[in-house]
Structures are given as structure tokens and as C-alpha cells.
């Protein structure tokens, strides 16, 4: 039982890395990106494709893929999401859904339906023991630490830097921010770049942690979304708590039966939705 909770906390780190970008895009633009999970999977596949070509250690792949996806995020925002925002919020939702289907089928055509993972040598399997029953994998711990650093970094960036201040200003009141000279389209692009970067990081971590296949994107989107709702909309630390709750629910569910392991986090989510729809750490202001 204690082991289930500890493994859940470790899994929660990965969930929050997914949810972070989702939360950011909704907070700043009011956009729900239905292609979020597929972008993570796409990042993993880009890594899988370039590692054998470049002959570099898998860890260096982060330095290539994450910036690549940040640029991609900015471009996708300016080319597709911005024009769709102008024709209404429902259009944006449908456009990101279309992107989700397009990315999934592109990956399917290029890489087949087989699952892939990123080989990182001994780090993937080594672990240390806390007691006779509880062992902690170095990789899971590393992902948890990275996710805490990323969430704290985004939070600090939003509150301590000039760009962060402008992002929050645009999120609070777009017209007023424009009056004082903020180019909201550029700011939206930066926010999308950040969101794509964090989700690419999540996708790479996932490919090291387990395996990805082209159709697994929506599952991660759903997990990230459930973490956001459980934690309370607009609160990154709430999302972190939500991710940990889902991780614990999964491992406890798996402890009971294989089928229940898949169902348990969704049941927890629906219960929270029914009993406490505002989540556990709701925030009154966006971002």
C-alpha cells in the first residue's frame, strides 16, 4: 500500500509535466488543445527517428527536440490557432481535434503501429531500495524532479520576468494589455511555444519511462486534463497534486486488478467532478 502511494507520486510527476502546457494554454488563451497528447507522442517519435541518425547519447536529444517543439508551437499558434481563435472558441477546439487526428495518422503512416521507446542504457532499469518491498527507480525520481523544476520554473517565469508579466497581463485583459503596447499574438505564440516545449519534454520522458505508440496520445491528454480538473483550474501546483492523486489511483487500482487499474483514475476524476467540481485548489484568477 505504501509502495502504491510512493509509485503513484513518482507517476504523478509525469502527469503534471503533461498537464502543465495544457493549463498554460487554457490560462493564457482560453484554448483547450486537444492535440496535446499527440504532440508529446510526436516529440517522442522525432527523438526515436533522430537518435540512430546522429549517434548521440539519448540525453542530448532533449537539447534538440525541446527547442524544436517550442519553435513549432510558436508557428502552429500563429498559422493555425490564431486564425481559428478569430472565428470563435468552438472552432479552435475543432481545429486542435483535427490536428490530433492528423498527427496520429501521420505517425501511423511513417512509423507503423508498433510501439517504440528511447534507449537510455542502465538508467532505465537501475533503482535503489528504501526497504525490502519499496524500490525507487532512478529514472522515475529524475522525471519527478524535472517536473517539479519545470513547474516551478514556469511559475517563476510568469511572476518574475518581464515576458511573464506581459503574458499574465494578456491573460487577464487582452484589450487593456494591447493598449499599453503588448502584441498579444506574439505573446500567445510564446505561450504556445512554452506549452509545446513542456509537452515535448513530457513525451521524451515518457518514451524513456515506457513505450509510446501513435494512438496513445489521447490517453495522455485525458490524464493531463483530469489532473487539471482535480487540482482546480488555473493552479499549476493544484495540477501537480492532481497528477499525484491520479498516479496513486492507478497504482492502487492495479494493486486490486488489471482492468481496475485502467478504470480507477477515471472514477476518481468523475467523483471529484460530481462532489467538488471546482477541484481542490481552485484559483480565482487565470494563470
Amino acid at each position: 500500500m505504501l509502495n502504491a502511494i510512493i509509485q503513484g507520486i513518482l507517476l504523478g510527476g509525469l502527469v503534471v509535466l503533461f498537464a502543465c502546457g495544457l493549463s498554460l494554454l487554457f490560462g493564457v488563451m482560453g484554448v483547450i488543445n486537444l492535440a496535446h497528447g499527440d504532440i508529446a507522442v510526436a516529440a517522442a517519435y522525432v527523438a526515436v527517428a533522430i537518435v540512430p541518425v546522429l549517434h548521440i547519447p539519448a540525453i542530448w536529444i532533449f537539447a534538440i527536440v525541446v527547442p524544436l517543439f517550442m519553435v513549432a508551437g510558436y508557428i502552429v499558434q500563429r498559422l493555425l490557432i490564431q486564425p481559428s481563435l478569430n472565428s470563435g472558441p468552438l472552432t479552435t477546439l475543432l481545429v486542435t481535434f483535427g490536428l490530433s487526428v492528423i498527427i496520429e495518422n501521420l505517425l501511423l503512416e511513417i512509423f507503423s503501429a508498433n510501439s517504440h521507446s528511447l534507449a537510455i542504457g542502465s538508467l532505465a532499469s537501475s533503482a535503489f531500495k528504501l526497504s525490502s518491498q519499496i524500490s525507487i527507480a532512478y529514472l522515475s525520481l529524475l522525471i519527478l524532479v524535472v517536473s517539479i523544476v519545470v513547474v516551478a520554473g514556469v511559475q517563476l517565469g510568469l511572476y518574475r520576468t518581464r515576458t511573464g508579466r506581459i503574458i499574465r497581463a494578456v491573460a487577464d485583459d487582452r484589450e487593456a494589455a494591447e493598449l499599453i503596447g503588448a502584441d498579444y499574438r506574439h505573446i500567445f505564440g510564446i505561450a504556445a511555444g512554452l506549452a509545446f516545449g513542456t509537452v515535448a519534454l513530457a513525451g521524451l520522458s515518457l518514451a524513456m519511462y515506457s513505450q509510446v505508440d501513435p494512438s496513445s496520445g489521447p490517453d495522455y491528454l485525458i490524464f493531463g486534463f483530469e489532473a487539471v480538473v482535480i487540482g482546480g483550474l488555473g493552479s499549476l501546483w493544484g495540477t501537480f497534486a492532481g497528477g499525484i492523486v491520479l498516479g496513486i489511483a492507478t497504482t492502487i487500482g492495479l494493486f486490486l486488478s488489471a482492468n481496475f487499474g485502467a478504470l480507477a483514475p477515471h472514477i476518481v476524476f468523475l467523483l471529484v467532478l460530481a462532489l467538488r467540481p471546482q477541484g481542490f485548489f481552485p484559483k480565482k484568477v487565470a494563470v
Partner: peptide, 21 residues
């Protein structure tokens, strides 16, 4: 209880739950 994009993803969750069940 949800609206907009959150309604959309929640319908997806409902479909996943129905499939697993």
C-alpha cells in the same frame, strides 16, 4: 458541470470509461 473544451475532453473520458467497463 463543464463547458467548452472541458466538456469536450470529459466526453472523451466518458467514452474511455464505457470502453473499459
Amino acid at each position: 458541470r463543464l463547458s467548452g473544451g472541458y466538456f469536450a475532453i470529459a466526453t472523451w473520458v466518458i467514452a474511455v470509461v464505457a470502453e473499459i467497463a
